[in-house]
Each structure stands twice: as C-alpha cells, then as structure tokens.
Write a protein that binds this DNA or RNA. Structure first.
Length: 267
DNA sequence: ATGACTGTCTTTGACAGA
C-alpha cells in the first residue's frame, strides 16, 4: 500500500502534475490540500478516467482538501463532527475530509486529508485560531475514534515540529510554523496515539523538507521546512516500510511550493 | 550569472501563503 500527501497550491494550475504523479507513483491513496476551488468545481473527470475515486471539500479561491482513492469509500466525513465547538471553526469543512475504506488488510481503514490554518503573524488572532484548530483536531479524534483504530492523518500541518525540520533553527525561532506554541500543539495532537512516519524511519536526519519559499532561490539552497506530515496509529506502524519526500515535483516548471510526501506499507 | 514569488478575486492592485 502506498499513500501520499501533497499541498498543490491550486488544483487548476497543478491538474496535469497531479495526473503525472498518479501515473508515475500510482499511490493507493492521495491526499491533496489547497485545491482553492468550490467542492463541486474540482476537476473530477481526468482522475476518475485513470481509476481513482475522488472526494473533495473546498471553498471559492481558498483552502480545499481532497482524497483520491483506488478503492471506493464506504463513507465520507467533512469537517469537525461531534466536537465541543464545531461552530467556532467555520472553515473546518474546507480543511478536513475523511473517508472510510475497506482493504489493505483492514475491515475499516480511516484516511484523512487536513489543511491546518497558516496562522499569519505569531500572537495574532489568526495565530490562536491555528492553535485552537490543532486542539480541536485532537478532540475530533478523541471523541470519534480510538488510537487502536487504523487511521492515516496526512496533510499540510503548517508546523515544523523540531529544529531538524527547518533549515536554520536559530534564524527561524519564533517564526510562523516554528513557534513554541505551534510545536507544542502538534505534539499534543500526536499524543492521541499518532506516529510521525518520517521520524519513525529517519529519526535524526536533517535537511528533509516538504516546503520551500518561492522567493530567494530557497529550493536551490534547500532552505525549507518540513510542514507536511503523514501520521498513523499503532495498527499501521508495524507495516510501515518507507517514507520519503518526492522532491522531483518541486523542481518542475510551475511547481507547487510544497513537494509530495510518500509512505509505503507492507500489505 | 550579480539572480524580480505565485496563487486568488464580481481583479487591473491587494492579500494570503509560510
């Protein structure tokens, strides 16, 4: 089983690159973020033509999450369900989508694509919205699921968890996506029972990033951050084989500013 | 060589992204 996550920064602009990715890598499941269009405006057809089922949830010109799957979803979940303050997160349906699939050795495997708010300036209202969003996401899993359930939560978390996850931890300390509170909220989410697959396979490696600024020649200098993650619960951990960032897609003409992350499982 | 970011919108510059 192969799964992948990719913030495409507009599915309209990246439509053919996503097709190319599916043809070359052939993941069983692909999570997309920042599709930047309304739920019904997603270009479903080209992906369906090559054998993928597609679910999407988005807003006009902003946010947007999708899941592409080789097997048919048994159910679809959008946004925060059964949480204490769902109305406090009006964009959660544009930022969280999940499906339940049968297969890969499980009667019910839960797969989520998530796009955590960027947060703007540290200490701004939007920054605290981001922190709260991470707390609410943890509550969503605590109220609806168990860490014994097989769950894959992947997407753009907009948090670089540790100093190895940024190109210069001194320069970037206190910078958005690398502040103490964001990192703490990320690890608090993990404490539900999630494992960070990249770190399971590469515990101390430096310089593994998933996002590079379009400006300043950042990609060429490998001045990036690791913001996109594939999290799994324990039932999947023993089957985890390999995790890597597919940097080729960041090097193409007109790339997204994020590269896909891929995890392979023995099934 | 001396290096100019890229999406969106009831757009024509503002803004968000990270």
């Amino acid at each position: 089983m192969v799964v992948a996550t990719w913030n495409v920064n507009s599915i309209k602009v990246r439509k053919d690159q996503v097709l190319e990715f599916l043809r070359e890598v052939g993941p069983d499941l692909l999570a997309l973020q920042e599709t930047k269009l309304k739920t019904e405006d997603f270009p479903f057809q080209p992906y369906q033509e090559i054998g993928y089922r597609v679910v999407h949830s988005g807003g006009k010109g902003r946010n947007g999450v999708a899941l592409l799957s080789k097997v048919a979803p048994k159910s679809i979940k959008r946004g925060f369900e059964n949480t204490s303050e769902p109305d406090s997160f009006p964009d959660s349906e544009e930022r969280l989508i999940g499906i339940e699939v049968e297969g890969f050795g499980f009667a019910s495997l839960l797969v989520f694509s998530v796009y955590i708010p960027n947060g703007g300036q540290p200490e701004s209202d939007y920054y605290y919205y981001k922190i709260s969003f991470l707390w609410q996401l943890k509550e969503f899993f605590e109220k609806n699921f168990s860490p014994e359930d097989p769950i894959i939560l992947m997407g753009d978390f907009n948090v670089a968890p540790e100093k190895e996850d940024v190109f210069d931890s001194v320069l970037l300390e206190g910078h958005i996506c690398f502040t103490e509170k964001e990192r703490k909220a990320f690890f608090d989410l993990l404490s539900f029972g999630f494992y960070d697959t990249l770190r399971e396979k590469h515990p101390k490696d430096k310089g593994i990033f998933t996002w590079w600024d379009y400006q300043f020649g950042a990609f060429k200098k490998n001045h990036g951050m690791r913001l996109d993650h594939i999290l799994i619960t324990k039932p999947l951990l023993e089957r985890l084989e390999e995790v890597y960032v597919e940097k080729r897609f960041r090097a193409k003409p007109k790339p997204s500013d994020h590269a896909p992350v891929i995890a392979k499982f023995l099934v």
